[in-house]
Structures are given as C-alpha cells and as structure tokens.
Design a protein around this nucleic acid. Sequence first.
DNA 1: TATTGTTATACTCTATAACTATA
DNA 2: TATAGTTATAGAGTATAACAATA
Lengths: 171, 171
Amino acid sequence: MSTTRQPSEESGVAAPRPRGTAFLLAQLGAHAAGRFAERVAALGLTPPDVGLLRMIATRPGLSQRALATELGVVPSRVVTLIDQLDGKGLVERRRSTEDRRNHALHLSADGQRVLAEIGTVAGEHEADICAGLDDAERAVLTGLLERIAERQGLTPGVHPGYRGMAKGRPR
Amino acid sequence: MSTTRQPSEESGVAAPRPRGTAFLLAQLGAHAAGRFAERVAALGLTPPDVGLLRMIATRPGLSQRALATELGVVPSRVVTLIDQLDGKGLVERRRSTEDRRNHALHLSADGQRVLAEIGTVAGEHEADICAGLDDAERAVLTGLLERIAERQGLTPGVHPGYRGMAKGRPR
DNA sequence: TATTGTTATACTCTATAACTATA
DNA sequence: TATAGTTATAGAGTATAACAATA
C-alpha cells in the first residue's frame, strides 16, 4: 500500500484531484447527510422519514398526493414511507369526510414526541458539523450558502434526495 | 394543492422546517452532486467513473485492491466499475510482471482525452454553482468549507459517496 | 372518465460470500 | 496458507404500470 502521491508522470495530465468549491460542497454535503442519517437511525428513522414527519407537522391534514407533489416524489413511494411511519404509530391516516378518496395525514402524540427528539438530534448535528467555527463565521457561511441555494432555485427545507436525483446514470 | 404554510396549528410543535447550516450543506451538496452527475452523463460517465479516472490518472499503475482501499470501497465493486471503463477503452488492466495476480491500472489515450473533457465540465460546473459570488466571497466560502472538511476528518478529493454511506438504514 | 391510494413488478446500486489463479 | 481479482447472489431503494375505490 501507499505510493508517493504525484501528478501522473505517465499521462502528463495536470492535477486531476478535485479542489473546487463545488466539489467541497458535494463532499461535505454527503458527509453531513451521512452523519445525520446515523443520528436519526438511533431513533429508528431514516432521513426521508424525518422529512415526511416535518412536512406533516408543518401542514397537518395534507393528502398523500399533495405530499408527493410537494416533495417531488412518486405517490407510490409516499405509500411505502407512510406505511412504515403508520406502522410505528407516528402518523395517522384519516379518511377525509369530504372526499373519501383522500387520506388526511396527521402526527400522533408519539409522532410529536419523536419530532421533538428529532429537533434535539438536529441541534447536536448542527453543533458537530459547525464545530471549529465561531458565531460570526457561521453567520457568514450560512449567508453564502443561502445565496447559492436561492440562486440555484432550491426549495427551502426540501432535500433534493427526495427526488431520486443525484444518480445520473447514462448508457 | 397548496394550503397556507404555517407552523402547525395542530401539534403546537415549533418550526419543524430545517434551516441550519448543516441542512443547507446537505441540501446544496446533493444538488451540486446531482448537477455534476448530469454534466458527466453527457460524457457517458457516472460520478464514480470520474472518481476512478482521476485516481488512476494521479497514481498510474495502482492495483484494484489499492484503489478499493483508497476509496473505501469493496474490491468487487471496483471490478464492476473498471469493467465498464475498460469496456469503453478508457482504462487498461496490465498484468503485473512481478506479481501476476495484480492488475496495474493505466489510462488509455482515450482515457486521457476524456479526463481533459472532465476538467472542462468540472470548470463549467464550478462556475455554475458559484455564480452570484464574487472572487472574495468564493475564497471565504472555500476557506470555511475546507476548515470544516479538515475538522471532520475528510480525505481531500475523496467523495464519501464512494463508501456507500449516507444511507443510514435502521430497523 | 378522472383521481387517490394501493399493489405488483422491475431495475439500479451496492455489499457479502464463494470461487480461481497466483504466490 | 494467504492474497488479487472475479463471479454469483442477495438486499435496499426507488420507479413504472396496473388496479380498486371513489368522485
């Protein structure tokens, strides 16, 4: 193992190692997402679960269809995810009285407790990731990230991972 | 579709929408990774392909085993990935004369051309993601990101996505 | 006929384990 | 026996399409 780490004597191609801001963002983002996944796994949840719970808490009574649209996900996937959360007793499906095709989604009491735990975990996660930066630096960083996010047209609070993108399969 | 977007009248739980720096990093990172995947897909490549090509260019003659260790990936996966790149004529497997169990990996002439194209694409990607920030702001952002990356113990140039993490499956 | 939710199915990605060929 | 590479197989995650109930 271990050879010296030099810019290809063979190919003569210049430094192929990615060092740009965009790569750092992707690298750090994947790291942060992974760490967060580990933390919520301790609560028996996956990141998508957390996203659904938060969305339902914010907009109780939402239909599965609306949720799918909101998150940019296919309806059948919402079924699977809600099935699991329902099975754990965290969310309830209530048949709408007006249109009985609809399932109005609500957090159960347990769901609300779990949501509170998620908040705690998210705080720890935030502190971990930002460790080493003082308050001023965090503010600067957050400001710059928000500007990029807005410029890129990202919906606040919606992780692109829900959209099954970030794969890019050619051939 | 569309209800007013308010902090849960029902649950009484406070703002469940993630707004922290860590979430922004994950969100933006997934976005950047997705956009990059789209770009290299135009070259008929996936992001993992790009990672391997860059690593092989940097350290020609590397064995598949060493590559797997370097990237934190299981050897069988390297076989699959190299199979594809080999099939496209971008990399060559050369039996080592010293230890004939080894395959020394090298970029072909085509592989080097493709690597140059990757460089172009990466530059466009970088410009796209950082659009809206001036040079000084980019420098500040990059500096802060690098400090976090170092603090988190990330290996420069190695995307955690190679490690199959960022999944976090409980139950 | 159109829509909500569901089920059935298939495909991609990735890991584990068994196998071969060299050492 | 140990190691590099390979093949076989299985699992998780996610999408597409067909279906049932309701409108």
